[in-house]
C-alpha cells in the first residue's frame, strides 16, 4: 500500500511538472513577438497605396493564412468603432509568389472585407511589405495627416489573443488626440515571408 502511494505520489509530481512546463512553454510561445523592422518614418513615395490629403492613414499587413491575425483584424474592427473621424485604412494581404490563385481568399480575407471603410489590398510577392519594411503578420502602421509615422507595432496582447492591449490603446489615442502613449509595440503573428534561412533550406 505504501509502495503504491509512493508510486502515485511520484507520478503526480511528474504530471504536475509536465503540466506546469507545458503551460509555461505555451505562454512563452504566445508572448514571443515576431520580427520588427524599422518602418519608414515618412509615407513611402514608391508605394501604390493611395493616401488622402489631410487624412491619417492606417495600414495593417497580414499573412492570409495566419491564425493569430484574426485577433488583429478583430482589434482593428474595435479601433474603427472607437474612431469616428476621417481615416484611410488598408488591410494588405501579403501573398508569397509561389502560391496558387485565390490562395489568399480564406476566412481572414472575408473578415477583413467585412470591415467598414477598409480597403483590402493584395500584395503579390510582398512588394508593399518591403516598401513599408514589415515582416510580421498583424503589424499596424499609422501615418498622420502630415505623412509622419506615429505608430508601428501589433495591436494584440499576444499571439492570437484578443482583448484590451497597449497597442490598440495607443492607436486609439493617436487617432482621437494626436498624442501617442506608445510609438511602437511588439507584433505577434506569423512571418509574412519566408525568412532567409528558411528560404535557403527550401530552395
Amino acid at each position: 500500500m505504501k509502495r503504491k502511494t509512493a508510486w502515485m505520489l511520484g507520478f503526480g509530481i511528474v504530471w504536475l511538472l509536465f503540466v506546469l512546463a507545458g503551460t509555461i512553454y505555451l505562454q512563452n510561445y504566445s508572448t514571443q513577438p515576431g520580427r520588427s523592422l524599422a518602418s519608414p518614418t515618412r509615407w513611402p513615395t514608391q508605394t501604390s497605396l493611395k493616401r488622402l490629403d489631410n487624412t491619417p492613414t492606417l495600414v495593417m499587413f497580414v499573412h492570409p493564412k495566419c491564425a493569430c491575425s484574426s485577433a488583429s483584424v478583430g482589434e482593428l474592427n474595435a479601433i474603427l468603432a472607437h474612431f469616428t473621424g476621417n481615416l484611410k485604412s488598408y488591410v494588405v494581404f501579403v501573398k508569397p509568389l509561389d502560391t496558387p490563385n485565390d490562395w489568399e481568399r480564406d476566412s481572414l480575407w472575408k473578415e477583413a472585407k467585412a470591415l467598414p471603410g477598409v480597403e483590402v489590398i493584395l500584395d503579390q510577392g510582398g512588394r508593399e511589405a518591403e516598401r513599408f519594411r514589415v515582416a510580421t503578420s498583424g503589424v499596424v502602421l499609422l501615418y498622420d495627416a502630415d505623412q509622419q509615422l506615429k505608430f508601428s507595432g501589433g495591436i494584440t496582447e499576444s499571439r492570437g489573443h484578443s482583448g484590451d492591449n497597449e497597442g490598440k490603446s495607443a492607436v486609439i489615442s493617436i487617432l482621437n488626440t494626436g498624442k501617442a502613449t506608445l510609438a511602437s509595440t511588439s507584433i505577434f503573428g506569423c512571418s509574412l515571408l519566408e525568412s532567409e534561412s528558411h528560404a535557403h533550406n527550401v530552395h
Partner: peptide
C-alpha cells in the same frame, strides 16, 4: 479549426496549439 498551422511565407508547419491541445 482556429489555429491548425503556423506560417512563414508559403511554408507551413503544425501550430503549437494543436500539440498543446493534444498533449497538455
Amino acid at each position: 479549426v482556429i489555429s491548425p498551422l503556423r506560417w512563414e511565407g508559403s511554408v507551413s508547419s503544425t501550430h503549437i496549439h494543436v500539440w498543446a491541445a493534444i498533449f497538455l
